[in-house]
Design a protein around this nucleic acid. Structure first.
Lengths: 328, 328
DNA sequence: TTGTATGCGTTATCAA
DNA sequence: TTGATAACGCATACAA
């Protein structure tokens, strides 16, 4: 123990947590010894004594998905150098696994929890509602947050993308989607609503699969769609991987983009701008969402309440070559 | 406390961890009360009393990189449903941050630690050597593991890719790389050695940058390379993002792949096969590496020692259209 | 500004 | 098969 420094354990504890409540001289001495011994307080003992931890749990449905890795990057970035410990949980798109994770996290008495989406199981919802910690929901906006919330409307975003296709002159838009998690479903719904409103909704042009999204799957889904509805003149893709695959498939088939077929992705991953032809996509603010979610958490933990508990980050349709039809 | 069940705390503890050391009757009663109260043991108290935890720490240099998300997926997959708690740390390619993470993790008395690569700082190495837990190193193979190790030789892999280009008939191969972390440097070295051996090494054809890798950067690096050495007839890319970018840039410039220029990536991400033209790449077994690293950890924690502490997973050059030159 | 007594909820050890 | 007791290492509350 660090009473090699000639002080009590209590003073060390104070020195490490409230340096300003300790005289400069003892502080120096303690720090010297701490450095020399490489002393690190036992978090288990701290947690037990204090009845709470510095853990901020983050539950996401995927660690493979680019979308969530961007969000995570923002979260890590904002928490860098601070005392808070990020702990990542991967629910793998399973509400039951999510429930298990929430239980595990809560048993650790975390300072806060960041969870994805609005679609928790009833039990999970009950746990979160009763939880004795701050909660930030990310990825979507909705009417009734457990506590705090930041995201955007997925249906509005895909609706806007659909209208972009129509404004570009396409009249027979299709939709391809993989793994229909709740957010994907809302995106599909946004497409449906916008297409119906414009009188161009044709269910035959909607192709979905429960399989997880890949570029290869984008190729296959486009092929499927074209075999069912060969006169489809544009596709809104549920995400950018599918869009890239669709583009490759068009190239293989000798279909000209954007003349023969227009392509629009979703999320605007970095590669969409670099592609040739560059691919139109709906930009979403994933990094920013990660950053701001953590900022909301930090503010809340610091005791400052936001004006509004829900932040809508919006989105933007970035028009590129893949939907830039010359007059036709 | 659950002595509502009419037993001592000790018996509850036993019932939960060694059910067979408790009589069937008391076990039933305890389980009933546990379920009814939704009791979950306090992990902090357990950790403090037992002096160890069920935590397996995983330290990777990036959460954004596809390579590591695949590895993580394998790790999560193998640990699913077990008592072990995966805890992820992101060192962001910084040896200092890695050191901090190792310290933090070790202070939690983890059961095991999975760390990436061979290039820890001296202090980190000392900490890991002295650590009272199992350690599995992933991503690379080397001569002196702290404990256990699984990976492959990056220099051998890029050497093989280089020879593939030569065998395909290319004589003026170039190399592009971003963010030269230690593994990238070894890949570059593998290229250098193989090219030198074949008498085709030209330093002007090697373009690198410390910037993190993106598809866009692949476009830029190819442009750079071609402006410095316009007669370059093939490129080995340090990873698949760069390769994809290089391909797009070629397309924009009207360069024919594989006739005018051959392209080879590294890692064989799923999209390489889907691309048009499909892109040659070096397949690495990332998911398998994640799975097996966790399996090694689990075996070690169960007390069974492997025959050899180091596993070399190898690699394979997957030849595709992007280097399939017709006779020329 | 610093120290002392006490307790956090669990587990190891030993005794019954 | 069960229970009593004593840690585990720190933080709270209070005293000095």
């Amino acid at each position: 123990m660090a009473r090699i420094a000639g002080v009590s354990a209590m003073t060390v504890s104070r020195a490490l947590r409230n340096p300003d409540k300790v005289s400069a001289k003892t502080l120096d001495k303690i720090r010297e010894v701490v450095d020399r011994l490489g002393y690190v307080p036992d978090p288990a003992a701290s947690a037990l004594a204090a009845g709470k931890t510095n853990v901020i749990g983050v539950i996401v449905p995927s660690v493979t998905n680019n979308v969530f890795s961007d969000v995570m990057r923002g979260i890590y970035e904002r928490s860098e150098g601070l005392k808070w410990q990020i702990q990542l949980g991967n629910s793998r798109y399973s509400p039951l696994e999510e429930e298990r994770l929430v239980r595990t996290f809560l048993s650790q008495k975390p300072a806060g929890l960041i969870v994805s989406g609005l679609d928790q199981s009833e039990t999970t919802a009950a746990l979160l509602t009763a939880a004795d910690c701050r909660i930030v929901q990310i990825m979507e906006c909705g009417p009734s947050p457990y506590d705090l919330m930041i995201g955007f409307s997925h249906s509005d975003a895909s609706g806007a993308a659909t209208r972009h296709l129509l404004e570009a002159g396409y009249r027979r838009p299709g939709y391809i989607a993989a793994r229909l998690d709740p957010r994907s479903q809302r995106r599909l719904q946004g497409f449906r609503d916008a297409a119906r409103q414009a009188g161009v909704l044709d269910p035959a042009r909607i192709v979905t699969t429960p399989r997880p999204s890949t570029v290869t799957l984008g190729c296959e889904l486009l092929a499927d769609l074209l075999s069912r509805a060969p006169d489809t003149d544009s596709i809104l893709c549920n995400n950018d991987d599918l869009a890239l695959g669709a583009m490759f498939e068009c190239r293989r088939r000798g279909l000209n983009i954007p003349q023969d077929i227009g392509i629009c992705g979703f999320n605007d991953l970095e590669m969409m701008a670099a592609a040739s032809p560059s691919i139109t996509s709906v930009r979403t603010y994933r990094l920013e969402m990660g950053r701001q979610s953590m900022q909301m958490m930090l503010d809340a933990l610091a005791g400052s309440e936001p004006d509004r508990p829900v932040i809508d980050l919006g989105f933007e349709v970035i028009a590129r070559e893949s939907t830039r039809r010359s007059v036709g």
